[in-house]
Design a protein around this nucleic acid. Structure first.
Length: 287
DNA sequence: CACCAGGCGATCT
DNA sequence: AGATCGCATGGT
């Protein structure tokens, strides 16, 4: 199959978009050159200036899968402009992380991945997601020495047990993962229904899953259900927001979330991701 | 050795 | 409501 080249791309940087912490299932082959899996597909993709190359990809696959995944139809210039008009404190974060787009990821993979993420560092999360995929998912090829497997479907996890996940080093999260799998298998979560639900109801619904609290529910809503007003408050965002908006004073997470809602409104998710990636890159607020 | 990691649930007051 | 702890595992 031929390669598909997307030209004149703006407000998009492949490395920033993948490395900003919103997704875990990819391997870096070289600078601006990655292989990733999502939605049951594998993709080798690279970028040079404003041209993005989707290897062995036809136009239909780009249009039907990757265009939405990379959120290419959204006007990020307008988003940045609105955010900066409202709050010029975001200037450094937006200028530094100008090429981040919020990926539209698969709900189930996002749910399991962020349940795993609690009290873990990103490299560990990536390893566990890759290991779960290697054990239960579908082999899609080897790229630069990395065997790539899709994240398992519910069907592929039909016989998975808590023991399996403990062997995969998920520790105390294993029962949480099982609860999420069982409840999805029981058909308790209709993705279209969750997507059409208002933000507050959606968070509340997700939090009925064991191991899903405010933070994980917000990540799943933002990255897996398209709710761009979600503003996940983790240890980094807490430090960053305290430094930028609370005079460095220790502030409860719910107060930070309430402030963010007031300040960024429906653009909360975009502000959060620029701030998270930028603040983390300069270790803002770390003693 | 201690302490922390894209937190959460249980158990206090 | 709000604060504190334990939790598996791996890294500094």
């Amino acid at each position: 199959m031929a390669d598909y080249k997307l030209k004149n791309v703006c407000d998009f940087d492949l490395a920033q978009t993948l490395e900003c912490g919103q997704c875990f299932h990819f391997v870096k082959l070289d600078e601006e050159d990655y292989v990733l899996t999502a939605k049951g597909y594998v993709l080798h993709v690279s970028q040079e200036a404003d041209t993005v190359t989707f290897y062995d990809t036809d136009k239909d696959e780009y249009v039907n899968v990757w265009k939405d995944y990379f959120d290419m139809d959204r006007d990020y210039s307008a988003i940045k402009k609105k955010l900066l008009e409202k709050d010029d404190k975001l200037k450094d974060a937006i200028e530094s992380m100008w090429g981040v787009r919020i990926l539209n990821q698969d709900f189930f993979e996002t749910l399991i991945s962020f349940i795993i993420s609690q009290n873990k560092q990103i490299p560990h999360i990536k390893k566990i997601v890759a290991d779960i995929s290697a054990k239960f998912g579908t082999y899609k090829g080897t790229y630069g020495g990395a065997d790539m497997y899709t994240f398992p479907t519910l069907e592929q996890l039909a016989n998975a047990s808590e023991e399996d996940f403990k062997e995969l080093k998920t520790g105390f999260r294993a029962p949480y993962i099982m609860d999420a799998i069982r409840r999805n298998m029981a058909g308790q979560f209709d993705i279209n229904e969750l997507k059409s639900m208002d933000y507050d109801s959606c968070i509340k619904e997700l939090m009925t899953i064991k191991g899903v609290g405010e933070k994980v529910a917000n990540c799943v809503s933002l990255f897996g259900l398209g709710k761009k007003e979600a503003f996940p408050v983790d240890v980094w965002i807490k430090r960053i927001m305290e430094t930028m908006y609370f005079d460095g004073v220790d502030t409860p997470k719910d107060k930070i979330a309430a402030f963010a809602k007031e300040q960024f409104g429906e653009l909360g998710g975009f502000a959060q991701q620029y701030l998270f990636y930028y603040g983390k890159s300069i270790k803002m607020g770390v003693k």
